[in-house]
Simulated assay, not measured.
Amino acid sequence: MGEDPSSDRIPDTPLFDRKRSLRGYRINKMAMGLGTPANREAFRENESAYLDRFGLTPEEKEAVMSRNWREMVRLGGNLFFILKISAVDPVRITEIGAHQAGMEHADFLRDRLGKK
Rank of each mutant, 00 (worst) to 15 (best):
W69A: 06
E41W: 02
I85G: 05
M72D: 13
G102E: 04
A106S: 12
L56V: 10
W69Q: 03
L56S: 11
D107L: 08
V73D: 00
A38H: 12
A87W: 09
D111W: 04
R18L: 13
K19Y: 12
R44A: 08
L75E: 04
T13I: 14
R40F: 03
S21T: 13
R40Y: 11
E62M: 04
E59F: 01
E95Q: 14
F80G: 13
R70P: 05
V88I: 06
G97N: 10
L79T: 07
G55W: 05
N28Y: 03
G35K: 02
N68R: 08
L34N: 12
G97Q: 08
P37G: 05
L15A: 06
E3D: 15
T57E: 09
E45A: 09
R9A: 13
R20L: 14
N46K: 00
S7T: 15
E62I: 02
K29N: 06
D52Y: 05
D12P: 04
S7N: 15
M30T: 05
L22G: 14
G24A: 01
F108M: 08
M103W: 03
L83K: 03
G55S: 02
D8A: 15
R20W: 01
T36C: 14
A49M: 13
N68Q: 04
S86Y: 08
R18F: 11
L34I: 08
E104F: 08
R112P: 01
L51I: 01
F108H: 13
S48L: 12
E3N: 15
K116C: 10
L113K: 10
E59Y: 02
D89P: 01
D111L: 03
V64P: 11
K61V: 06
I96A: 01
R70D: 00
E104Q: 13
R67S: 12
P58R: 12
M32Q: 14
R74H: 09
F81Y: 10
P37E: 08
A63L: 09
D17L: 08
E47S: 14
T94L: 09
G55A: 05
A106E: 11
N39L: 06
R74D: 12
M30S: 09
